[in-house]
């Protein structure tokens, strides 16, 4: 750790981390990254690059899937939390929004939100004012409270899981593919809201997503992963303008027209 006394340590820091699943499968190798307080950090890369794995080892849920940090260290606010379990990380105000809009389908929207109030079962009394933080950013949820979550639309489900996490009052929010399978305009809206939440509630966020353009638009810093390793890293605005990113993730390369055939070939080669 390089943090000095007058310098706040980053919220999360991964130092040369190697993650192995099931004691056999090497998922992530030599990854060093950090998220400064109040930042949105983008974690980009294709399917299977290790984005989810990294989030899961930060939140500890990876431990329950037989994942293990076998080398390197994970620090949370300067303290070593390598291989900590979910219970501990929740206790440190880390909330993880898992991939795939995991609403509790047979519970109503209100009951889903209520689950965000759970803290070691201490909370017994509650009322709708506990959900204010959710309604502030996603007012449409207020009309859906009595609807079974399984019957709401994809966008509403994504809003619901974000709201449920907000009610949990995290300092660090980990989001796994929040844009997956949503209509483009909805993605824009949700990302704008995330940015607002990040600013107004002072919640540090790490967003893993394949939608590089949208994610970098709201992020402060970005990492590009491939095959379990970090390929690129830069402040978001710098990263967005790098040729590799433009070419492979944004599809807006300046040389697009001239080298379109080559580009297609390269994309196929790298993504398949």
């Amino acid at each position: 750790m390089s943090a000095t006394a007058d310098e706040e340590p980053p919220v999360v820091e991964l130092d040369n981390v190697e993650i192995v699943y099931d004691r056999t499968f090497l998922a992530v190798q030599g990854v060093s990254m950090e998220a400064e307080e109040g930042d949105i950090v983008a974690l980009l890369g294709p399917n299977g690059a290790g984005k989810s794995t990294i989030l899961k080892m930060i939140s500890g849920i990876g431990r329950s899937e037989r994942g293990e940090v076998t080398r390197g260290s994970v620090y949370f606010e300067g303290e070593d939390v390598t291989n900590a379990d979910t219970k501990e990380m929740v206790g440190r105000n880390v909330t993880h929004i898992l991939e795939g809009r995991r609403v509790f389908e047979d519970l109503t929207v209100e009951e889903n939100l209520r689950c965000g109030l759970y803290r070691d079962g201490r909370r017994i009394r509650y009322d709708n004012s506990d959900y204010e933080i959710a309604f502030e950013y996603f007012p449409q949820l207020e009309d859906l409270l009595d609807v079974e979550a399984g019957y709401t639309s994809g966008g509403e489900q994504q809003m619901l899981v974000i709201s449920r996490a907000l009610i949990h009052r995290p300092d660090l929010l980990l989001l796994d593919e929040p844009s997956l399978g949503l209509a483009p305009q909805l993605v824009v809206d949700i990302y704008e809201t995330l940015r607002k939440i990040n600013r107004e509630e002072d919640i540090t966020m790490i967003i893993a997503d394949q939608n590089a353009k949208r994610t970098l638009e709201i992020a402060d810093y970005g990492y590009v992963l491939e095959n379990g390793q970090i390929e690129l890293q830069d402040p978001a605005d710098v990263l967005m303008n790098r040729e590799e990113i433009k070419e492979f993730y944004l599809g807006t390369s300046a040389e697009e027209s001239r080298y379109s055939d080559i580009r297609h070939y390269k994309i196929r080669k790298r993504w398949k």
């Binding site: 939140s59 849920i61 329950s64 979910t86 219970k87 929740v90 206790g91 909330t95 993880h96 929004i97 898992l98 995991r102 609403v103 509790f104 389908e105 047979d106 519970l107 689950c115 965000g116 759970y118 803290r119 070691d120 899981v161 449920r164 949990h168």
Partner: peptide
């Protein structure tokens, strides 16, 4: 209904 999604909310 979803054990993992509950675990990340702090359920043991």
């Amino acid at each position: 209904s979803d054990q993992q999604a509950a675990m990340v909310l702090g359920v043991s």
